[in-house]
């Protein structure tokens, strides 16, 4: 109006913080919306299916009552927990020594050994499962070799032994990686100081290295146990009738019993079990450290 003051812009000026918040929202939105509609909503849909009546579709906890009285469900849950615990323990027994061994190698040797851990880590679970069927089968490599030296053949496939070997093979690299990380984070001065003070190698290990690597051991074992709970391929391909796990039961109800409600209910139960153990893991310091490592 010619009074000399500059016209105030019509568009509301955003503060720097508002502008930043807008950019942040634009960056996070695609992934978050995608995961909301292609992951969270489907999971919620499964929950709703599990709570619907098979014929009328009305709200019903019938499937849960059926599950609660199903001896098959209890048996499979028990099998799942047993196999998961056993696979976690065998994996830990194999992983700790090599993590320790790798920790004491020169950087170059360690990098090479790391490749020997990473290649199996990345190898398709189907390649591994196939390898075990070929090696452990009735006419497989192991039994061929046993036959050569005149020993009776052994049954390593389609039973608990096969499942545990297959799962351990899959899980060991996970544990090596987490344990090695926590071993590497021990300041080298600590074991050095302990041995200067006169501690023997064994004492240094037992009193210094082992306790300081426990966060990695706990976090890694918990991670591996949680992964085990959802195993599907290994028990299906290497296990027998006695080794059906919860994930296989979900498929059984969906494909063979054609009962979506039961399949959903068991999936929800499996989800809750895994969530329970995840929550327990996050309660521990090790879990918090692991989570911090992932996010931060």
């Amino acid at each position: 109006m010619g009074d000399g003051t500059p016209a105030t812009p019509k568009r509301r000026q955003l503060t720097l913080e508002q502008r930043h918040a807008l950019y942040t929202a634009l960056l996070i939105a695609p992934a978050t919306l995608f995961m909301l509609f292609v992951y969270a909503v489907p999971l919620a849909y499964v929950v709703s299916v599990s709570l619907a009546d098979k014929t009328t579709g009305a709200f019903s906890i019938g499937s849960y009552q059926q599950v609660a009285t199903s001896s098959l469900f209890y048996k499979v849950t028990w099998t799942t927990l047993q196999i998961s615990a056993l696979a976690t323990i065998t994996s830990l027994l194999l992983a700790y020594p090599i993590a320790l061994y790798m920790n004491y190698q020169s950087a170059r040797v360690r990098a090479f050994l790391m490749l020997l851990v990473l290649v199996p880590f990345w190898t398709s679970i189907l390649v591994k499962s196939y390898a075990f069927t070929v090696i452990f089968g009735q006419a497989g490599v192991v039994n061929q070799l046993l036959g050569l030296v005149g020993l009776p053949s052994v049954k390593l496939l389609f039973n608990r032994v096969g499942v545990i070997i297959g799962m351990t093979h899959y899980l060991v690299p996970f544990l090596v990686l987490t344990i090695l990380t926590s071993l590497r984070s021990i300041p080298p001065d600590l074991p050095r100081a302990a041995s200067i003070m006169g501690a023997s190698k064994l004492v240094v290990f037992r009193r210094v290295v082992l306790p300081l690597s426990m966060p990695g051991v706990i976090a890694g074992s918990a991670l591996v146990f949680i992964l085990s709970l959802g195993f599907y391929v290994v028990p299906a391909l290497l296990g027998g009738r006695q080794d059906v796990m919860l994930a296989n039961l979900v498929e059984f109800y969906l494909r063979e019993a054609l009962n979506w409600q039961m399949a959903s209910t068991i999936a929800v139960m499996l989800l809750l079990t895994a969530a329970l153990f995840v929550a327990l893991l996050f309660k521990t310091r090790a879990g918090a450290a692991l989570a911090g490592e992932q996010r931060a």
Partner: peptide, 11 residues
């Protein structure tokens, strides 16, 4: 567990 995501997306 992958099977939960698999079932959820399937349905």
């Amino acid at each position: 567990p992958g099977v939960a995501i698999a079932l959820a997306l399937y349905l």
